[in-house]
Structure formats: C-alpha cells, structure tokens
Design a protein around this nucleic acid. Structure first.
Lengths: 192, 192
DNA sequence: CTTACCATGTAAGGCGTTACATGATTCA
DNA sequence: TGAATCATGTAACGCCTTACATGGTAAG
C-alpha cells in the first residue's frame, strides 16, 4: 500500500481544517463549505459523512453524539493527532490547483458553432459571474470589520482572490465579445 | 438509462472538437490537449483511447489504420453525425466551470500554520504561475500573426483568458504577501 | 398542513488518473 | 547503445456526485 496516490483526497484536510476552527456536525461542515469555500472547493454529503467515519477510526477526530430536543446530532471535534495531521499537510508543498472550464472549451471550438453562439456562451458565463460577485463583495465587507479574529484574515485573502479573478473574468468577457462583434460588423449586410 | 447524469464526461466533445479541426491519432490528440487546452482542461491516455473506441462504435468518428514505416497508427476522422453531436453540445447551455485550488484551501486554513508558512505557499503558487505565463504570452504572439485562419481567433480568446487571470493571480500574490508581511512587522522584536 | 430546513447516511456508478505493459523509431 | 519520442492500450482503483432513503422540527 501507499505505492499509488501520494496525492488526492483533500476532503480529510478540509474537514480537519474546519474542525480546527470549531467543533461541528457533518451537516454544519457542508454548510460551511458551501458558504466559504464554494468559490474554489466543493463537497457533497456522500463524501463528507464517510470521511468523518474514517477520520474517527484514525483517531484524528472524536464523535460526540448529542440529542437536541429529540433530534440526534453528531458533533465532531479535532484531536491533537488530527491537528498534527492538518499541520503536516498545510506545510507540505506540491499543491494541486486545477481549473476545468467548459465555457473555455466551447470558446476554443467556437469556429464550429459560429460567433453568435460563442457570444451567447460568453454571456451566460458573464451572468453567472455577475451573480456570484455580490456575495463575494459582501463577504469582503463583513470580514474587513472583523479583523481581530485571527482566522478572518485568512478568509479575507481567499475572498480577495475571488473578487480579483472574477473581475478579470468580466473584463475578458467584454473584450472577447468586442472582438467577436467587430468581426460581425465587418460582415454587415451578409445576414438577412 | 439516461436517468442519471445529463452532465459530465466532456472527453467526447474535446476529441470531437479537435477532430473537427483536423484528423489525427490518439497520441496526437493528447499532445494537442497538452499544448492548447492544458490551462483549462487535461486528459490522459487512459481516458482518450477508450473514448475513441466508444466514439467509433457510436459512428461519431471513423478509424483509419495506417502504417507509417512499419509503425502502426490509427488516424481518426469525425463523421457528419459526430459534427452534429459536437454542434449540439456547443450550442447547449449549462456549462460547468470548476475551480479546485488546493493553494486557496491552505490559505484559508492559514491560521493553523502561521503567516510564514502561508507566505511560503503563496510563493510556491506564484512561481508556478510565473513559469506558465511565458508560454501563454508566446502563444498569444504566435496567434496574433495568424488571424486569417478562422480557428485561430478562438484559440486567441482562450489564451487571452489565461493571461488575464494569471496576471490577476500575480497581483493577488503581491497584495496577499504584503498583508501578511505587514502583520509580521507589527510583531517585530517578538521573534528571537 | 405543508414547505422548508435540520440531520445522517448508503448504494451505484460515472469519471479519470496512475501504473503497467509493449514495442518501434529516431537521435546523440 | 541508450535515451527520448512515437504509439497504443488495459487494469486497478481512487474520488466524488447523484439519487435514494429516512425522519424529526420549525415556520408560515
């Protein structure tokens, strides 16, 4: 064992990271990921709950079953071993940063579907970005005011990353559409 | 069947797209992906060759076995059905654009490893970007001169996207490190 | 009363990489 | 002669989402 991989499966670290800030349930972990990490990381229950069990078996977290008004809830807490595990990963090098943009694929093959279609695809992309930006900007403003908490500084950095790249995306959308539209004007009169 | 999915597996479209430009072998497809799409899409032989067989069975491509000086080579060509399939996808909406940046995860949990480590992680990220940018800029300059070819306009758009976002990343690296370093200066004298 | 949310989990299966396996040719 | 590149493919397996399954509580 241990021959393959050496990479992948970062769910462990995401969960340990969140638990290092605060003990919580699997359900709450999912909410935090969707709230704070969704811009650059995603997770489903189908990977969260099994991972929590693995982490418990490896003694990196402990499970505390509580019942709040008859409703069962498993609160997980990180152990010292878990903190060490997290730290080791945080200090390791070789981070994998992956982009997988179907929109760019469609743009790349744009000659097969024409300029109008490509413009439509860019518009759809632009709308998605424009819808996401306000949330990032709100997060930015909220975090700016909460600088006393050590963790917030780091949250802020990731939010800044999101805002910067999304603004770059929007600029690109404008320029790309201009390029494509200037092409169309050159052909003026050819279309009915 | 057809109940699940409705999304995913874009390898078909990537291959059809490349073959719509030019007939080629699986090996050559891999090279093209690594050359042109690597910034926003990746593929391995383990997914290319099986997909080519599926596409052939579905009559979306045809295989032509040739032997070039005793060396066997399978040249694939897109069929009319394949072109229709590609077109349908190009014109469909709901593109999935996904980012998965481990570096940002490490930054987000930066409070657990400290400012120095986070700066190191950002430096590593910065170096990777700085190494990739020259290739994108070269591609940009090459494509600018070849505007008569219809396909090149669209290649250029994706290259522009890459350059713009990478520049935004580098800006972020600078700002992020400044924020973290100003923090360190505030504590000057605390370290031995 | 019914919708939304809280809460936990499993099963199936798609997707894609890694590693392995093989062998020819080209170039230094 | 040995390394790099050309060229094709498979097996194993890890990762993750989707869909399913269940049931309680809060709010309108």
């Amino acid at each position: 064992m241990e021959r393959k991989m050496a990479n992948k499966k970062k769910m462990d670290q995401v969960i340990l990271g969140l638990l290092s800030h605060e003990s919580m349930s699997g359900y709450e972990i999912k909410k935090r990921i969707d709230m704070w990490l969704t811009f650059f990381w995603n997770a489903s229950y189908g990977s969260i709950y099994p991972t929590l069990n693995e982490l418990e078996q490896d003694k990196l977290v402990t499970k505390n079953q509580t019942s709040d008004k008859g409703r069962n809830k498993n609160i997980y807490a990180i152990t010292d071993a878990g903190k060490q595990h997290l730290q080791k990963w945080l200090e390791s090098s070789g981070a994998r940063d992956e982009l997988r943009y179907e929109t760019l694929l469609k743009v790349f093959f744009g000659s097969e579907s024409g300029m109008y279609n490509t413009i439509n695809q860019i518009n759809e992309f632009e709308r998605k970005i424009e819808q996401s930006l306000p949330m990032l900007k709100m997060a930015y403003q909220n975090l700016e005011g909460l600088q006393e908490e050590e963790t917030h500084k780091f949250y802020l950095l990731t939010v800044m990353f999101g805002i910067k790249t999304y603004n770059a995306y929007l600029e690109w959308c404008k320029e790309a559409k201009q390029m494509l539209e200037s092409e169309v004007k050159g052909l003026e009169g050819d279309e009915e």
